[in-house]
Design a protein around this nucleic acid. Sequence first.
RNA 1: UGGGGUGUCGCCAAGCGGUAAGGCACGGGAUUUUGAUUCCCGCAUUCGUAGGUUCAAAUCCUGCCACCCCAGCCA
Length: 548
Amino acid sequence: MKIPEATNFIEQFINEELAAGKFEANGNKIHVRFPPEPNGYLHIGHVKAMCINFGVKERYDGTLNLRMDDTNPAKEDYEYVNSIVDALKWLGFEYDKLVFASDYYDKLYEIAEKYIIDGNAYVCDLSAEEITATRGTLTEAGTPSPYRNRSAEENLKLFREMKAGIYPDGSRVLRAKIDMSSPNINMRDPVIYRIAHVEHYRTGNKWCVYPMYDFAHPLSDAIEGITHSLCSLEFENHRPLYDWVIEKAGFPAPVPRQIEFARLNITNMLMSKRYLKKLVDEGFVRGWDDPRMPTIMGLKNRGVPPTALKKFCTDVGVAKAYSVVNQAQLDSCIRDELNETAERAMAVINPLKLTITNYSGEEELVFEKNPAKENSGVRKVKFTGNVYIDRDDFSENPPPKYKRLYLGGTVRLKGAYIVRCDEAVKDDSGEVCELKCTYFPETKSGSNAETTVKAKGVVQWVDALYGADAEFRRYQPLLKDEDYPDQDYAERLNKDSEKSFFGKAEPYLAESADGTPFQLMRTGYYKKCTDGGLLLSEIVSLKDSFNK
RNA sequence: UGGGGUGUCGCCAAGCGGUAAGGCACGGGAUUUUGAUUCCCGCAUUCGUAGGUUCAAAUCCUGCCACCCCAGCCA
């Protein structure tokens, strides 16, 4: 078999196994899984996990199961499984099979009975508090439960009674019988089944005992024939238990192998389902797919292209070192993609009238639809000499190196002519309300006419007469500062998080005057001239991909 | 203080005994119908630290330091 070149340490590990012939028996098929718990919407952190798993699937021509890790009925719901399926679809990740851990409840229960019969598990009557108290500490061994040596018969009877529902929640649990003095606390007789008289969103009231993650996950992997179970670093301590559970169940080799990687962190972005759920539940955002949320659906509604998300995850790489990636790197990927795909248009946020005193008539100017893309076509924009420019593109007291318009200065109206500002008309309150300018006919864009007139800057404009139809005259950013949840709340929620919640989102998305959503691309303007204001130089129609 | 991990440029990250890739950010220059894009150019004599092995170490060995994870009937 041809072994592909590894792009990260996980694939390197797989390659070594392949080279050693570990999977020869099954034709060197690699089988992975992506196992979210349907208890919330997927966020950008999950995209990294997906890229890793789907990357392995593709590179080794393997298979991938999307598995709903639904072993805790209290938290899970169909709304979330649907949202997960939708997110994968939007991202373009194609899995081979959709499976549910809850599909294995019968099988898992059988294995639990086998554990009991083999003397590897016992029913423990200790309360949750007592179990905690007898588990020991980081430095001291735990003490064995008084129920640890019950006979297999008694354990079986009790466990069946638990299943039958005659015991209340919390009265008994099934524990794995491993080692109460293990330095790894996860091995100190962990609970593998608990009683919960809770309706499960899929199995209804069929069960009142549910398997724990540490029991269900490795067995689900083994049942599905997963070869590599990729998860985040915090499960490293669980690996010995993962291996133990599979071994005692008696699965034949090759048995699934758990490999851990560092999860994604981004500056200014809160990535914890628990906190995101709070924001939704407490009404700080409009929902899981609110454009301020770092969820995949939120990002989508923010105007982020899926390819940008995937590119970002690929760029960031996979390693075992804890890390926090700068949001700038995400932004860069988004801009990169948008620059390639975005259709261009001009926009004005805070209109300021600009009248060209020596121009009459009207003409149609030709623009490239997307200068970054070859043969992207053209768009035509009508020009009458009466336009609006953005207030921020005119300064009464231009700072040094100012490149836009000021009294007596010149600027190019993008795609049109260079104009000189002769007069700034003020209203009663003393605010500039109109600019009177002179234009230079020979400076028309695209013409190579000889001229001595120069302009340092280029500004966008919208025609006063045709603007509303031709280009977008006025638009509102969808996300404003005041749309962000208050920072005190953010800090109370998660003291460790850096200041803001989701990061100051780049205003990728805006709404035009007629309510049409448009995508914005940050440019140098925004970068260098934000004094509270927001100045974008490109907007893009999002009609097709936006569906809110 | 037990166990498990991790430490390479401001932020990610390659590197796997032969003399420090790449991306983001940043700085400089050129082109420009967006202060954008594109295009050049610059950006770790040094790999947590102290020793040791070797002709040769970020890579091997030893000690130390820092940070992260584990005591849910969550996943």
